[in-house]
Amino acid sequence: MRKRFLAVAFCALATQAAAEDAADKAKIEDGATTYENYCATCHGMELRNNTGVAFDLRRLHADEHPRFVNSVLHGKQAMPAWDGTLTTDQVEELWAYVRANANDAKK
């Protein structure tokens, strides 16, 4: 009985973990689309820009989420404020995409 219970519990956990992975993946993919539509013009496709004029977003660290959100919503230097154009969800998706491709996230 116990063994069976454990097996069921394990399966449930695994399914939950897989679902979370899938949700993260979807979030990153949505972020990639938003990035291509709104950000790539200056920041470059795949977060790479050749001139260095726009900030290299891959340099952002995990603890810089507030800085990121603030800059996106209110603008920074030449970047316009995106508040009112991008939704809160879209900004979070962008963050997921940026973090998934950050320099310090690379294995």
């Binding site: 013009t41 496709m45 820009n49 050749n50 001139t51 260095g52």
Partner: peptide, 20 residues
Amino acid sequence: GTGGVYVLKIPDANLAHVPP
């Protein structure tokens, strides 16, 4: 004076050392 859609958008390692 570099810029324009190709330089801004399309990653190109050959341009790594071209300043704006």
